[in-house]
Each structure stands twice: as C-alpha cells, then as structure tokens.
Design a protein around this nucleic acid. Structure first.
Lengths: 191, 191
DNA sequence: TATGTTAGTTAGTAACAACTAACATTTTGT
DNA sequence: ACAAAATGTTAGTTGTTACTAACTAACATA
C-alpha cells in the first residue's frame, strides 16, 4: 500500500510541524495539507498520530561520524582536534535540529529511556574526557587541570553557541560562529 | 470578585503545567484540579485560557539585579567580576526556569516582539562587551582579543551549563556547576 | 439580619480533532 | 488496454475541550 515517496514527504512535514509547534498543537489535517495529501493517506501510511510522531523521532541520524573521528582522524594537535570536534558537533546538531526541538517540546511523550538527545552528549563526553586524558599524559594539558570540568565546559560552550545561533540570531550578527569557536579554542589552548 | 490567594495559586499551577507540557497539552480542568479549585473559578479569575497564559508569562522577573551590579558592584578584578556575573546569571535563569521553558515550548504563542527571554541576553551582552572594553583599555585583556566573540562565548558557556544541569543532570554528576564555572573563568583569565 | 463577595455544581453548547468505513478516482506497471 | 496499487472524497462516529449560564452554598461585614 505505501508509496515510499509520499511516506517520506509526510514524515518530513511532520517533523517540521512537530518541532515548530509541538505534538498537540499539530493536527493530522495540517500535516496532510502541507504534504499536499489527503488526511486518509496519512492514516493509511502511519495508522495513527502517535505512531507518526515516533517514526519521525526515529529519524535521528545517529553519530557514527564521531566514532570514526575518534578512532581514525585524531591528530593529537590540541587546536586542530578541538576545532574539528567543534565543527562536527555543530554539523550534527544542525542536521538534527528539528528532532532535537521535537524532543525538547514533547519530552513527556518520549518514553524511550535512552533517547539519542540524551545519550549523544554523554557518549561524546566520555570520548572527550579520554582524549583530554591522553593529551594530559602527553604533557599537552596542565597536570592540575580538572578534565571533567574542562570537558563539560567545552560541550556547554558548543551547545550554547548552537542554541544562540538558532534561537537568538541577533546575538551572532557581528561575529560568525566560526570566529567564536576559534576564539574559544585559542583561549583554551593558552592555558 | 477575585481573591488574591486563589489567583496566585492558579497562576503558579499554570506556569508549572505550561512549562512542563506546553500550552495546548494543558487543559483548564487539569489546572483547576491541581489548584484544588473548580473549573469555573479559573474562568472567573482569568476569563480565558490565552489570558491565563499571558498572565503567567508576564511573571518573568526582570533583571534589575544585573543593572545594579554593573552600576555599583564591579571590582574591575576580572576573575571576581566574571565569577559574580556567572553566579548572577545562573541565579536569574534558575529563578525564571519555568517561564523560559514556557517560552521555548510555546514560542509561536508569544507575539510580543521583544520577549524577555530574547532581550535579556542581548542587554547582558551589551553590558559585558562594554565591561570587557574597559578592561582591555586598562590592559587587563590582550589587545588582539575579539571582545564580541569573547562575550558570546562567555554567555554561551553559561547558558550551556544551565541547560545541561537542568536537562542532562547526569552530565554534572561528578563535578559541580561551581567547579565548572571556576574552571572556565580560570582558563579565560590565563589568556 | 441583610448584603455582597467568592467559590462550587451541574448541565449544556459549539467546535474541533482523531479516526473509520465505503466508495470513487487516478496512477502505475505490464 | 487492463488490473492492481495508491490516493482522494465524503460522511459519520466518538471523544475532548474551551467556554457559558443558571443556580447554590459559605462566609464576612456592616
């Protein structure tokens, strides 16, 4: 019964609307209209609204890039690595922006104990702490530095930048995201 | 007609629910029940749902503390000032947490062109840039440093920390918010 | 005692949204 | 050109929700 194309169109529209307005503020009719499809077609493809939501939510593009990077592409030059990680982070967040918003707006609906939005930063944190530990052993990070705090701050800054760019674009009018990241990493390295 | 007490109780419950579940997911019945009041009482006090939402939203405790601090309490010791500002920031965000969540979840409802969640960081940014400029002139910040980027990073880190503490408490299990802030500011100062 | 204020109760309306069913129409592959 | 698959249309059911109206009960105060 299903046609892959219309299925995808409906999913895309659904993600868009759910992330913009939240689950309960979106109607099937609205989704159908925007997807240029009849209401019935939506039901035929997804059975019910909640299932549509879950299917949208499962669209999260998981983070294989990070795994690969930490396994193969580290240079162990602090500046280069951190820059690359920041870029990867911003990319990943950008790609999954809508899903992330969807989770923020509908957290009560997400029963999955380990949703990707939660596990992603935690896994990344683990990898970063390990990386910093290696660098500390190599003498490239001061011995007295608290690596947990350093990691959390690194992730927090990156998240904060992502948030500000998307929710407060006025803030980043005079300076680009890239400049901010460079500034932050430069100041990190000097200590 | 209105009794100040029940009015406040209803408002408080409403803020709670709106911030947790979003406008359209909350019913008047629900609010009434949780406030231990009949549905009618809610309507008598607030006329309609949207008005209740707006009244809740207006509860935002604006930032007079910051104004005062920047006018009177600056020490012009970079470390002390930044620590204090971070503390004030976290306090303000904590106090207005629910309202902030309310805005995030219902941004489409907020027609007000200049909502406090938007203006607060922008005003703070202005003040911070000015402060950093003064400090740069005093020679306490390197001449080549981009102050816009520095400010945005400072705010982003603080926001990121606030977000992580509230939405990803697991992240901050082994290290306290205060430790992270100290670590961040220490590393800022060394550059 | 009388009166006004505040809140509860009950019943009901109007609108809307999720979802179903039956049938008609278009599109697609062969 | 034909059959099957995909989509549209229409009408209706069911449940929910914002909101109204009319009436009642408790209580404070003058």
């Amino acid at each position: 019964m299903p046609n892959k194309d219309t299925y995808e169109v409906i999913l895309e529209v659904a993600i868009n609307l759910f992330s913009k307005k939240g689950y309960n503020s979106v109607t099937i009719k609205e989704i159908a209209n925007e997807a240029q499809v009849s209401e019935m077609t939506v039901f035929r493809h997804f059975n019910n609204k909640l299932n549509l939501f879950n299917k949208s939510f499962a669209e999260y593009v998981y983070i294989p890039k990070f795994k690969e990077f930490f396994e193969n592409d580290l240079t162990y030059n602090l500046k280069d690595d951190l820059l690359k990680i920041s870029q990867l982070y911003q990319e990943t967040m950008e790609n999954n922006k809508k899903i992330i918003l969807m989770e923020l707006k509908n957290d009560e609906l997400i029963t999955n104990p380990q949703s990707p939005l939660d596990t992603f930063p935690l896994k990344l944190k683990e990898k970063l702490v390990n990386y910093f530990l290696t660098m500390q052993k190599k003498g490239l990070i001061k011995q007295e530095r608290d690596l947990e705090a350093l990691t959390i701050n690194f992730l927090s800054t990156n998240f904060g930048l992502f948030f500000n760019i998307n929710c407060l674009p006025e803030m980043l009018k005079e300076v680009s995201l890239e400049d901010c990241i460079k500034d932050y990493i430069d100041s990190l390295i000097e200590s």
